[in-house]
Write a protein that binds this DNA or RNA. Structure first.
Lengths: 138, 138
DNA sequence: TATTGTTATACTCTATAACTATA
DNA sequence: TATAGTTATAGAGTATAACAATA
């Protein structure tokens, strides 16, 4: 047994801390960075609240306040879904897109530094394990 | 680019949620579970506060309140270090050891379920990547 | 009736800075 | 002077339950 979960939590804490330090001038909390990055990776930079929650691993109640702050700063917009008016569609605004791109770049930097001395397929294999852990915990 | 950091954060949220659900009767917060598990993996189940913080990825100020709660419940003890009286040695008590063992088992369960359909070396390889991410973020 | 998202409350986690005590 | 840990404060993340609007 490797006790992957302990390494997982430590790596998350460490990378999150690095990210908020590198992007300190943006004045964004870890979950705000996470939400922006997840939106940026979606088609049209749009998502319903529940899709975003599933992608980010964030609870609905947390997401509401994260989106409140991001919306207030003009980085995302909220609009009712065309067909199902219960759901809310979240979209990156143009300024939000600019900032989200910077967040993705900062994440890529950390990833590149970590993988520099590892085999080329290490990232893809690790991602497979991380997704399996997410599935196993569902 | 795989954007490992996004998968990392999602996996952490998901597994932490699973863990606190499985161990709900213990009434322990995620960081308390993490601290107990990290202590259990150490020689003599003992550690200084800063060693524990480094292993768990927890900030000193957070750790103080985590240890306050664990100490009050009789799961850990705090004592001054023999040689350097600035440092505090944290130890699992016998009841704390019992509970920490259960926490490690619950973590192992999630890990086993996730790895069931993956190659035997997947866990070790993933752990290497996680440690590299921790290092790259330091 | 069930689902999506929000609100309300209480507790936990974090950053920051100031502080005590030891070295 | 520097380090280990704690305290204080304010803001961010979470669970839980209740709620409004829509399906």
């Amino acid at each position: 047994m490797v006790f992957l979960l302990l390494d997982l939590q430590r790596a998350t804490h460490a990378t999150l801390h690095r990210l908020t330090t590198d992007l300190a001038e943006l004045r964004l909390a870890p979950s705000e960075l996470n939400a922006l990055a997840n939106l940026a990776r979606r088609p049209d930079a749009a998502s319903t609240v529940s899709e975003l929650g599933a992608a980010a691993g964030t609870r609905p109640t947390t997401l509401t306040s994260i989106l409140d702050r991001l919306e207030q700063r003009g980085l995302v917009s909220r609009a009712p879904h065309e067909r199902d008016r219960r759901t809310v569609v979240v979209r990156l605004t143009p300024p939000g897109t600019t900032i989200a791109t910077r967040v993705l770049e900062a994440m890529a930097d950390v990833e590149r530094r970590a993988l520099a001395s590892l085999p080329p397929d290490a990232a893809e294999r690790a991602a497979t394990v991380l997704r399996a852990l997410t599935e196993a915990a569902a």
